Computed example of a mutant assay.
Amino acid sequence: MSRTALVTGGAGGIGRAVCARLAAEGDTVLLADLDPGAVADAASAIGAGVVPWALDVADAGSRRAAVARAGELGGVDLLVNCAGVLRDARIRTLEPSTFRRLIEINLVGPLALTRLAAGGMAERGRGAVVNVASRAWLGTFGSTAYSTAKGGLIGATRSLALELGPRGITVNAVAPGFVETPMTDGLPAEIRRRSIAAIPVGRAGTPEDAAAAVAYLAGAGYVTGQVLVACGGRSIGAPYAAGRS
């Protein structure tokens, strides 16, 4: 059955791959992101089945407009909360404004969009929400604010699954590990090297890896309240002897 999917952060690395995957599966995808130019470029590159839409997930009016546009396309059957931002610091230098911004975009925005979309899903008796969290919810040095936001998103995912399950709505989360995206391109070379060396499968993830996990949870009607950690095994622990077979 073809669905209408609202994907936030749809012009970014993982979000764009999610939009491409869903469109290839026959869904109508509302590709929503902050930069109108990037939105138009991403939608054009993916092609058929994708509708561009400018969205600021931190703005209440913008969120309502996006859900209303999805309503014109048939109503939100699938909400993928992929928009996110990573600007963090150690706790001694973490500015309150930075902390609030991370919480607003990574946690408050997704919950507000879920609230808006869940009403129509409940009326139709079906729907799915997939939150893109991060392996950082397990704890990442120097990323207290980001980890807090993503950990909160996972806690909300589990609680919402209990609340919305009786209405026919599943709520799950994907927690990617180190994925090659514009967000990670700016990391220092040594940090990148050490991060990849700690991944048991021996490589960084791709946006398509994360998109495959999102697509699975979007269609897994008997799976809810779960966190699929797509990290190449990194969440298990570091390899016993990195670089050895």
Rank of each mutant, 00 (worst) to 15 (best):
E25T: 00
R87H: 14
A24Y: 06
L30T: 09
S245P: 12
A60S: 12
L30F: 09
V76W: 10
A197W: 07
A145S: 15
L107G: 08
A118G: 01
A89F: 05
V229E: 05
A42R: 00
G225I: 07
V18Y: 03
R194Y: 05
R135M: 15
R124W: 00
F141V: 15
P36E: 01
G84V: 09
G120Q: 08
G165D: 00
R90V: 15
A20I: 01
D27Q: 01
F178T: 08
L6S: 03
L94C: 09
A70Q: 04
A215Q: 03
T148C: 15
A189Q: 14
Q226E: 14
V174R: 04
I91E: 12
G109Q: 11
G26K: 05
W53A: 10
L30K: 07
G151D: 05
R100D: 15
R192W: 03
R101D: 15
P166V: 10
A204L: 02
C19L: 03
A83I: 11
G71C: 06
D27T: 04
Q226R: 14
T140A: 14
N81P: 13
R87P: 05
A38P: 00
A242N: 08
A220M: 02
I236S: 06
A70C: 08
P110F: 13
M183V: 14
M1A: 10
V132Y: 02
T93I: 12
G15R: 05
T224G: 07
L6H: 02
G119C: 04
L55G: 04
L138A: 13
G12Y: 00
G205I: 04
E180H: 11
A32S: 11
G151H: 05
V108S: 06
L164K: 00
I169T: 08
S62E: 10
R101V: 13
A210V: 14
Y240D: 14
A83N: 10
E72A: 12
G155H: 07
A20K: 03
A218S: 13
A83M: 09
R3Q: 11
V57H: 02
A204D: 02
R90H: 14
V227E: 12
R192N: 00
V18C: 03
A40D: 06
A230I: 11
A128L: 09
A215M: 06
A68N: 07
C231L: 06
I199F: 02
G84H: 06
A189E: 15
I103P: 06
D41Q: 13
G237N: 04
R16K: 10
P52Q: 01
A54S: 12
G155D: 04
A218Y: 08
V214F: 10
R244F: 14
R167G: 04
A48D: 12
V29W: 03
E25D: 11
C231V: 07
A68L: 11
L162M: 14
A197P: 01
N172F: 10
K150C: 07
V80T: 09
S235Y: 10
G13V: 09
V80L: 09
A58E: 08
A238S: 14
L160S: 08
R87S: 15
A40C: 00
T224W: 11
A20H: 02
A54N: 00
I169K: 04
V67H: 01
E123M: 11
N172L: 10
V67F: 05
L78M: 05
D59V: 10
P110D: 13
A60L: 12
I191S: 12
V108R: 06
D33C: 10
L160T: 09
I191K: 12
S147D: 03
S97M: 13
D33I: 10
P36N: 01
F178K: 01
R90Y: 14
Y216E: 00
